[in-house]
């Protein structure tokens, strides 16, 4: 990139940094404030941080966010690879159609999808009715709705398109002749995948993982509305602290702690994936 091209990126970069740092600075400031008679008072108090440090609930919820993000990332990656690789084999016209199909669920809006899932997974929902109809089960499956299973299923479903897109773009850049060369040299299709395709698509996997992790770890609506008793999240707690409980200092501290944790996990994930030989061959020369 030339000197001048770099300068073109400056205004946007500045806006992104300012738009990110300013609210963060506000959060940091708030986390040291005090609340007196339902009023936020500027102060330099460690009350909120102290409360957070010893709250097992808060840390449990932060851990849950990490787990939820990592699990969703792993599930979407496992499901996304076959889909992404299948997409690379479509003709150009088929690819256009495939992208539309892939992204259509995203256009329906989260609330609509959540209520649709309730209809599909509920006690008298589509799945249970169908399974009872064919005689596979006698009683409706209870775990389908309002359970950790529901959260995992829906988060995976919601985030799959992002993972597929990221891996797909990476897979399109893998020279097909490399796969033929691998087969020619004795690799079964599964060997060719693990020795050639996977290493050379790790940049896409990294991009997809970061996106999916960020989206699913911070997800609040899906767990709240479909997770039942297991649906509590750190995000919902932050929402509650800012709103009903009017404890902005604690809300700020919790939000910052959550952000820092997710950032660390995401960096670790990206670092791990991009350290692989294949990624280094694609992204930066070894």
């Amino acid at each position: 990139m030339t000197f001048r091209q770099r300068h073109l990126a400056l205004p946007v970069a500045a806006a992104i940094v300012a738009g990110c740092l300013a609210p963060l600075a506000v959060l940091v400031a708030f986390s040291f404030y005090e609340v007196e008679d339902f009023e936020l008072v500027p102060a330099f108090s460690f009350r909120a941080w102290g409360e957070l440090a010893f709250s097992s609930t808060d840390w449990f919820l932060i851990g849950k966010a990490v787990l939820s993000g990592v699990a969703t990332t792993v599930f979407t990656a496992i499901l996304g690879y076959p889909v992404a690789l299948a997409l690379t084999r479509l003709a150009a016209s088929g690819k256009g159609l495939a992208v539309i199909v892939l992204l259509t669920p995203l256009y329906t809006g989260e609330i609509v999808r959540i209520y649709a899932w309730r209809i599909v997974l509920g006690g008298e929902g589509l799945v249970n009715t169908l399974l009872q109809g064919v005689g596979l089960i006698d009683e409706p499956l209870k775990f389908l709705l309002f359970s950790p299973f529901t959260i995992a299923l829906v988060l995976t479903y919601n985030n799959l398109p992002f993972m597929v897109l990221a891996i797909w773009v990476s897979a399109e850049m893998v020279d097909r002749r490399l796969i033929e060369a691998a087969r020619d040299l004795g690799a079964r299709p599964i060997d060719a995948f693990f020795r050639v395709i996977f290493p050379l698509t790790t940049p896409g996997l990294a991009a997809g993982s970061l996106t999916v992790f960020a989206l699913s770890a911070g997800e609040m609506l899906t767990p709240s509305l479909l997770g039942g008793t297991s649906g509590s999240t750190a995000m919902a707690l932050v929402d509650n602290l800012f709103g009903t409980a009017f404890d902005w200092p604690l809300a700020s501290a919790l939000a910052l702690a959550l952000l820092a944790t997710l950032f660390l996990v995401a960096s670790a994930m990206a670092g791990l994936l991009l350290r692989l030989k294949g990624a280094r061959a694609v992204v930066g020369r070894v």
Partner: peptide, 28 residues
């Protein structure tokens, strides 16, 4: 299938694996 034929190919574009060293390419 290709992997079970006692036949090997030198490709027009060489098709060397970019993420592997020369040794690892040859040892593949």
């Amino acid at each position: 299938p290709p992997e079970r034929r006692p036949v090997n190919t030198v490709f027009q574009s060489y098709a060397l694996f970019p993420h592997l060293t020369v040794n690892d390419n040859v040892a593949f």
